[in-house]
């Protein structure tokens, strides 16, 4: 294109200059946006308003802290492949893994105990906690605030206190210490977390959907099963996950309420640390870390929800 018709010739240009500087607009000139122009671009909120070219103080801190969090795990995992017992590197070996998998009956029994308790207590806690969250969120009744307080305190009390009070309680009411008492204790400290996670999820739930479902002829039961449950599922799943990991992880409370024959994995690890460290722990660490990684990967959708409750 050789020439461009930018502005009309001199005569018109002169005419243009004579016009008043500002014109009030008539509404007739409002238009629809022209076709083919790009739609509104929305960056995620957290990425707006920052200069991407700087590697700031906070990023450096984050990397350092993450390194700090992983450093001990890394050391332990590395030495799980060490041929000798100590922390002096003497060569690569899979001996400890062999021992872990083929020569640690007690460890695996403890693991089985932990597993059984984690599954049962987290399922019970998830069920009761979710149900209660629904009840509290949607219906008004007098004892609501009581439940809210009683479900909040266990989360902030130190574990030692909960452990001791339960030990004293079980002794007082003559419940024998063992698998059952551990199950009860774990369910108790898991309940508040599930309750909190599901409540947070319900907070975002649109109440009118229930009315709409009822309006369309769903019964109370159908509303629960077809509308409420699916929509709070992410909260419930996060709660379940959280409960499982906390139960598998707990040492202090279990320490108080366990009895003979009900050693869980953390208790077993504790006795290994106290009474004769074996590098089998190193090998076990890698197995557990891999398990946790798989879990975190599988449930990555829920990590943000879980973060919100910790």
């Amino acid at each position: 294109m050789s020439t461009s018709p930018k502005v009309k010739s001199a005569a018109v240009a002169a005419k243009l200059k004579k016009q008043p500087k500002k014109m009030r607009l008539e509404p007739s000139r409002l238009v629809e946006a022209p076709k083919g122009t790009p739609g509104p671009y929305k960056l995620p909120k957290n990425q707006m308003f920052q200069d991407h070219r700087k590697f700031g103080f906070s990023n450096i801190m984050l990397v350092l802290v993450i390194a700090f969090l992983f450093m001990p795990l890394f050391v332990v995992v590395t030495y799980s492949f060490n041929a000798s017992r100590g922390m002096r590197w003497t060569g690569f070996s899979l001996e400890w893994y062999y021992k872990l998998f083929f020569d640690s009956k007690e460890l695996w029994r403890a693991f089985a105990n932990s597993f059984v308790i984690a599954i049962t207590s987290s399922i019970v806690a998830t069920f009761l906690g979710s149900l209660s969250a629904i009840g509290i969120k949607w219906y008004k009744f007098k004892s609501r605030s009581y439940i809210q307080v009683v479900s909040f305190l266990p989360m902030v009390l130190p574990e030692v206190i909960i452990g001791i009070s339960m030990l004293i309680f079980f002794t007082a009411v003559k419940i024998p210490l063992g698998m059952f008492s551990i199950f009860v204790a774990h369910t108790t400290f898991n309940l508040p977390f599930v309750f909190l996670l599901v409540s947070a999820r319900l907070e975002e739930f649109d109440f009118s959907v229930i009315e709409a479902a009822r309006d369309l002829g769903a019964t109370e039961r159908q509303t629960l099963m077809k509308v409420i449950v699916p929509s709070i599922m992410p909260g419930v799943m996060s709660g379940l996950l959280m409960a499982i990991t906390m139960s598998l992880e707990d040492f202090v409370i279990t320490f108080f309420v366990s009895g003979p024959g009900s050693t869980t994995l953390p208790l077993y690890v504790y006795s290994m640390i106290r009474y004769g460290v074996s590098p089998v722990i190193n090998a076990l660490s890698l197995v557990l870390i891999l398990g946790i990684m798989l879990l975190a990967l599988g449930f990555r959708r829920f990590l943000k929800t879980i973060a919100a409750s910790s």
């Binding site: 930018k6 502005v7 009309k8 018109v12 243009l16 016009q19 008043p20 500087k21 500002k22 014109m23 007739s28 000139r29 238009v31 946006a33 022209p34 122009t37």
Partner: peptide, 21 residues
């Protein structure tokens, strides 16, 4: 340009379409 120039004498087809009908 001034509003008048832009409306009355758009430089490109885009301007013509974008400003007014």
């Amino acid at each position: 340009g001034t509003p008048y120039e832009i409306y009355e004498s758009p430089a490109t087809d885009f301007v013509a379409r974008f400003i007014g009908e």
